[in-house]
């Protein structure tokens, strides 16, 4: 994959430049003609990508600089939308704080709990047990996401909810809350849902990394008397940093894009107590028809996600052993 990426920007035009100059035109033309059926193979794919992906993406970037309400003529604002966003829009600023909490917890929980489960499974002796546990941990991942969200909504329910019933059972009636309905707890309830935070897919990705560690490395570590927790910290974790990096990137992206959960659970409320930027964008666009302003939020999220991903890929080093 890395070689692909390095090669990727080099178009064949530059490769053709390396050939004898007098042959270049003819050769390129001939080669294109020779592979004409290949271009034909790519036509449907690119027709769809240009229509449903490229056009909206560029349109989103372009319209972020306009006041653009449905039915009205777009009006160029320059950076006006962004100025309003960061200076006047208190809800947006608040939503940034909320999303950083959500994302931080997502990253923290994704690098701890699934890794613990992966280590537990990896160190089992019986392959049958290993396989059973792998299937059992992945099973909740195939329950539709909306069902999980609606179930957690039920767990947090103020009058019928499981959490309040549990608190009553252990004698902590004072702690009972309408968890999603109270401005004090709504954001935390959304953040910490999903207990015990073990994503099956994440576990399998860690497991794949652990299985990829060569037996020699582990054997020699045993000879040197390195085992148990010591082995996890000095051998397992450094050797599967690649997996950790992927999980962190996915968790950051998932956290910033994870506004669907907020939308379903609280709709950002009560008031704006659990508002996040993605949902704020949705509200601006589909409740109030402020398409240009919403596009500016979309562009901000795009830049943020891309920036964080690049930082993570570039500066969190993966050791190659």
């Amino acid at each position: 994959m890395t070689t692909e990426e390095i090669r990727a920007p080099a178009s064949s035009a530059t490769m053709a430049d390396l050939r004898a100059p007098r042959e270049r035109q003819a050769t390129l033309g001939q080669r294109i003609y020779r592979y004409r059926f290949v271009y034909l193979m790519l036509v449907p794919t690119f027709a769809l990508l240009l229509t449903f992906n490229y056009y909206p993406a560029f349109m989103g970037l372009y319209r972020a600089f306009f006041k653009w309400d449905i039915g009205l003529q777009p009006e160029f604002l320059g950076l006006g939308n962004f100025e309003k966003l960061f200076i006047k829009d208190d809800t947006f600023i608040k939503s940034l704080r909320h999303v950083s909490l959500l994302t931080s917890w997502r990253v923290i929980s994704a690098v701890t709990f699934p890794f613990i489960v992966a280590e537990l499974i990896f160190n089992l002796r019986s392959n049958v047990h290993k396989y059973t546990y792998r299937v059992l941990t992945i099973l909740p991942a195939v329950v539709p996401g909306i069902v999980i969200l609606l179930l957690w909504q039920f767990i947090y329910d103020g009058t019928h909810g499981l959490l309040n019933a549990f608190l009553e059972g252990v004698g902590l009636e004072d702690w009972q809350q309408p968890w999603l309905g109270s401005p004090k707890t709504a954001l935390y309830a959304v953040t910490f849902m999903g207990f015990p935070w073990v994503g099956g897919v994440t576990v399998l990705i860690y497991l794949a990394g652990l299985q990829g560690i060569s037996d020699e490395v582990i054997d020699s570590s045993l000879v040197d008397g390195c085992s148990g927790l010591r082995r996890i910290f000095s051998i397992d974790i450094p050797l599967i940093l690649g997996q950790f990096k992927l999980i962190i990137v996915l968790a950051v992206i998932g956290g910033l894009q994870g506004w669907v959960a907020v939308f379903v659970m609280t709709a950002g409320g009560p008031g704006t107590a659990s508002m996040v930027p993605g949902l704020w964008m949705y509200n601006n666009a589909f409740l109030w028809n402020k398409m240009g302003y919403a596009s500016a939020i979309g562009m901000f999220l795009f830049v943020l996600i891309m920036g964080l991903t690049i930082i993570n890929v570039k500066f969190v080093k993966t050791g190659d052993y």
Binding site: L49, F52, P56, A57, M59, I70, G278, M281, G298
Partner: peptide, 18 residues
Amino acid sequence: LALLMVPGELTLIPAFLL
């Protein structure tokens, strides 16, 4: 490949209008 980097948030509104 470049499209892997484009989040749904950026395209949601223009795609809807499209």
